[in-house]
């Protein structure tokens, strides 16, 4: 039996090893139970078994962040693992990008990692950040985003905006300092990333306010994909309503015609 080398493969896995069980050692490296003080009972697992198989047995479910921590930890102790094995085991796609993604995730701030675990963020969701191998100056903005606890979709979308803006050397400091909630932050980031569209939207919003919409109509400027326009909501319960709305919309059309506006 190899003596315990004192090396603990503590990679912050969420599943906690039951206290009643002895800790497991593989070739002198402790694989489980890192929190129990003075654990005296340890079992050396069969030396012939692969460490990948052992880890997969011990941790039947690991998320990407946990795997990234495992990657970082094994690099520190120069333990080479077969990562294709883990991809198969945990239902991930192995490619040339996989290990760089683990490297990236392993170096994210703890707050971001925690959010990624909670929201089950996938390998593909980190793709926007791959252009930023050393994104130290962008990390604080990622922390700022997860501070608002966005949904996975919103968070990943904002990560991409931040990646684009940081790569463009945009100064986001004041924008983050001023944002009071996720919606404000999201709108501000979008406006900086898409200045032409934001200006167009602003103009359209101003125009919509000046138009003589029929009473009880809600009109607002919206973007649908690659087109901007006006969404109009109306409630109709009689033909008379229809007639009134049509008359009202004709008045809107007249104003647009007088200003020679062909499209919104």
């Amino acid at each position: 039996m190899a003596p315990h080398s004192g090396i603990k493969l503590d990679f912050g896995a969420t599943p906690v090893w039951p206290k009643v069980l002895p800790a497991l050692i593989w070739k002198g490296v402790q694989l489980t139970d890192f929190f129990t003080e003075n654990k005296t009972e340890m079992i050396e697992v069969e030396e012939g078994a692969s460490v990948e198989e052992l880890l997969a047995e011990i941790y039947p479910k690991l998320k990407l962040v946990e795997l990234s921590n495992l990657y970082k930890k094994t690099k520190e102790i120069s333990l080479n693992l077969n990562w294709e094995f883990f991809c198969v085991k945990y239902g991930l796609r192995f490619s040339d990008n996989f290990l760089p993604t683990l490297e990236l995730v392993a170096n994210l701030p703890d707050e971001v990692k925690k959010w990624c675990i909670n929201k089950d963020v996938s390998e593909r969701d980190f793709a926007p950040l791959m252009a930023l191998p050393v994104m130290q100056k962008g990390y604080k903005y990622l922390v700022g985003v997860v501070g608002f606890n966005p949904s996975r979709n919103d968070g990943v979308r904002l990560f991409e905006l931040i990646a684009d803006l940081v790569l463009s050397d945009a100064d986001l400091h004041s924008l983050f300092a001023e944002a009071k909630n996720l919606n404000e932050l999201s709108r501000s980031l979008w406006s900086v990333r898409f200045p032409l569209a934001a200006e167009q939207s602003q103009k359209l919003t101003e125009l919509v306010k000046t138009l003589p919409w029929p009473l009880k109509t809600q009109a607002r400027a919206v973007r649908v994909g690659d087109q901007s326009g006006v969404e109009v909501k109306m409630f109709i319960h009689s033909r008379e309503d229809i007639r009134k709305y049509l008359d009202g919309l004709a008045a809107v059309d007249n104003v647009l015609a007088s200003q020679n506006i062909q499209r919104l």
Binding site: M130, A131, L167, S168, R193, P195, L196
Partner: peptide
């Protein structure tokens, strides 16, 4: 983005799903 960075005009572009 990874190959050309956002200094590229194509990456800076304001594009929306069509």
């Amino acid at each position: 983005r990874e190959r050309f960075g956002t200094k590229s005009l194509t990456l800076q572009s304001e594009l929306f799903q069509s």
